[in-house]
Amino acid sequence: MKKVLLALFLVLVLLAAIVDFSPASIPPCDQYLEWCVFTYCRQYYNPDQYLQCVNKCAENYALNCL
């Protein structure tokens, strides 16, 4: 009985986790650059940090999408 309950619990947790497993979504390549530069990097106010972030976006875009 205990084992059955444990198994049931595990299945439930798994199901809940699969349904609720929602990380911050990264958009597909056709939207990636705009999203990365204009939504993600927006948190950096300083132009230097912003430009670093933007350069990284361009690098990721070039590596993964082109």
Binding site: A24, I26, C36, Q49, C53, K56, C57, N60
Partner: peptide, 17 residues
């Protein structure tokens, strides 16, 4: 802490969401 997401970040502390 979750693993790093290659596509998402630009800066050192970005991973610590």
């Amino acid at each position: 802490l979750g693993i790093k997401t290659q596509m998402s970040s630009g800066c050192s502390s970005c991973e610590l969401v």
